[in-house]
Design a protein around this nucleic acid. Structure first.
Length: 435
RNA sequence: GGAAGUGUGGCUGAGUGGUCGAAAGCGCCGCUCUCGAAAAGCGGUAGCUCCGCAAGGGGCUCGGAGGUUCGAAUCCUCCCACUUCCGCCA
């Protein structure tokens, strides 16, 4: 959510931002509704002032006078009730529009409609012709085939038990996942993150707060009690401080949150139906930061978060590239987003495994996460309340990361070389093979 | 699932129809005292919002949403969360 005052003062900018994101939003409509809202509430406030004034007199005057005043107030009350009804309707419309106002993309975000125009800014490892990719002297297999051959996963029984897109990880498939989590914990916690295991079964409010609802209803599973299954630990982690006032000296707060994640993948029915790329249920370590309300700080933390993820992938030695997402590929609240994409040898292209975005105060305004800022110009020591800034970044999604790992490190005999950094967590073994 | 209770400012906690945006304490900020600190004393200290250049003034907020009333933190209804007891399950 943006500040209505900011929207009023920068209507054109907000409208252009929506256009750049290819989001259909009519700012004029919002301003009209806001004019109505302001006019009605002013009228109402005048009447309330009158009422309050009389209210203090009532107990002080004699009974004749009191009867007369009460009669007057009865009339005033009727007028107020009419105004209140009108105002209520306007506010409902106003709120509906307000939560739909997209945040403004950063200047550095390229134009474009969808992920096809995302802009590559880096590829790794570096070679003369750009990013170096994995080379094979044989025809590589896909991860599904490799995992089945090595008894690392079971998709048939996955769908039998769990339905479409269901899967089991077993043997080295399971162990490799644990190893990745362990390595990831060590990697990220070295940078002063607070480790968290957060709820996936969460209330609607939390999802509205992070900006996933109301517009993303069809992507989420909902229980018969009205809770939702979260698609990312970001939501619970962000909502952790909902309606709280933080101490400025504790900022930035950095969290590494783990949770199961659930996605309906509505509208993705034909896509990636085999294997572990697109599943309904997975696990993810997520980085979340709450920081001071300054653009510079957001940018700094954004680079920091993304670089963390890059370093993690580099430690696994999987070829990747980083892209800046174009405006059309940004979510409602995102100001700027980097995707990290890993090399998929069979498809001969990079595929996204995670992203890092910042939001300014879009999320924290909805969630009510504030801190008291010191005002250097005031000697009184009184600070202003500010909404914190928020950022988040995929640290590591499992099992999706297994796909790249297995396909890139497969050998001609169907075995898989285990990245060195993972070996301590998987019995010191160098490879996964049939025997 | 059943029963009872609780939800008030940064925190603890008083307040059961008008004088309550709210006692008191803690914390925090400023000042006095001190070489300095502690202690003590004095003063200040909620947020949001509207009008205004400002000074200042108005409105809203006591878990949330409704209702009763001229008037609600206080009474009523529903919801949410927490606590305790019972039951059930791990």
């Amino acid at each position: 959510m943006l500040d209505i005052k900011f929207i009023r003062d920068n209507a054109e900018l907000v409208q252009e931002g929506a256009k750049k994101k290819h989001i259909d939003f009519d700012i004029k409509k919002l301003l009209e509704v806001d004019d109505k809202r302001k006019a009605l509430s002013q009228q109402l406030e005048e009447k309330r002032a009158k009422q309050n004034q009389v209210n203090t007199e009532v107990p002080k005057v004699d009974s004749d006078k009191r009867t007369q005043l009460i009669k007057e107030m009865q009339l005033l009350k009727e007028e107020m009730q009419k105004l209140e009804e009108q105002l209520k309707e306007v506010i409902i419309e106003w709120q509906k529009l307000m939560v739909a106002v997209p945040n403004i993309p950063d200047m550095s975000v390229p134009e474009g409609e969808d992920d096809s125009t995302n802009l590559e800014i880096k590829s790794w490892p570096v070679s003369a012709s750009g990013g170096e990719k994995t080379k094979f002297s044989f025809t590589p297999k896909n991860h599904t085939e490799l995992m089945l051959d090595l008894d690392m996963a079971d998709f048939d029984r996955g769908t039998k038990v769990a339905g479409f897109r269901g899967y089991f990880l077993k043997n080295d498939g399971a162990l490799l996942s644990y190893a990745i989590w362990q390595h990831a914990l060590n990697h990220f916690l070295a940078k002063d993150f607070t480790p968290m295991i957060v709820p996936s079964l969460i209330r609607r409010e939390s999802l509205i707060g992070s900006g996933y609802l109301p517009q993303g209803e069809e992507d989420l599973y909902r229980t018969q009690d009205g809770e939702y299954l979260s698609g990312t630990a970001e939501v619970a982690t962000m909502a952790y401080y909902m309606d709280e006032i933080l101490d400025k000296k504790d900022l930035p707060k950095k969290f590494l949150s783990f949770s199961p994640c659930f996605r309906r993948e509505a509208g993705a029915h034909g896509k990636d139906v085999k294997g572990l790329i697109r599943v309904h249920e997975f696990y993810k370590l997520e980085q979340v930061i709450l920081c001071e309300a300054s653009h510079e700080e957001s940018v700094k933390q954004h680079e920091f978060l993304h670089r963390n993820t890059e370093e993690f992938i580099e430690s696994l030695k999987i070829p990747y590239r980083t892209v800046i997402n174009c405006a059309g590929d940004l979510g409602l609240g995102q100001v700027k987003k980097y995707d990290i994409e890993l090399w998929v040898p069979l498809e001969k292209k990079y595929r996204e495994i995670g992203s890092t975005s910042y939001f300014h105060d879009f999320q924290t305004r909805r969630l009510g996460i504030r801190y008291k800022d010191e005002d250097p110009s005031a000697s009184s020591g009184q600070g202003k309340m500010k909404f914190a800034h928020s950022l988040n970044s995929t640290a590591i999604p499992t099992p999706r990361i297994l796909v790249s790992l297995i396909e890139n490190f497969q050998q001609i005999d169907g075995s898989i070389i285990i990245p060195e950094v993972l070996r301590p967590y998987i019995g010191g073994r160098e490879k996964i093979s049939k025997n």
